[in-house]
């Protein structure tokens, strides 16, 4: 019989399941603790800080030192895309969804302009 899953696939499957369990840990713990602890405890504030800092480290890396197709876009294009997105956010009275679409559209436009040799 042909092997359907190679060892890399199994490794990835185990990874997704383990990461899912790790994520559920906090959800399940939250359900268990609800009604038993107060929300304003130092441990919870520390947990929130670590989670924010880690998310910021991920986002900074994806924007500044990306893997995959974003690495093909020059840094200056990514920075302009972020700048236009941020500018739109404040001009559009904090409509995050519209600002994200405008910023991402800007990056696509810059890439087209480069491809046809205008930049």
């Amino acid at each position: 019989m042909q092997t359907i899953l190679d060892s890399r696939d199994l490794w990835l499957l185990a990874l997704v399941v383990a990461a899912g369990l790790g994520s559920y840990l906090w959800r399940g713990l939250g359900v268990w603790l609800s009604g038993r602890v107060t929300l304003d405890s130092p441990v919870l504030r520390w947990v929130t800080c670590v989670s924010y800092a880690m998310l910021a480290a991920l986002v900074a890396r994806m924007l500044m030192m990306p893997e995959g197709p974003l690495a093909a876009a020059p840094l200056v294009d990514r920075v302009i895309g972020c700048g236009i997105g941020l500018g739109s956010l404040f001009l559009l009275k904090r409509n995050t969804l519209a600002a994200v679409l405008i910023g991402a559209g800007t990056l696509a436009l810059l890439s087209v302009l480069r491809a046809i040799g205008w930049l």
Partner: peptide, 10 residues
């Protein structure tokens, strides 16, 4: 990165 679910779930 998902630790923020704890203070959200409570």
């Amino acid at each position: 990165i998902n630790a923020r679910f704890l203070p959200m779930t409570l």
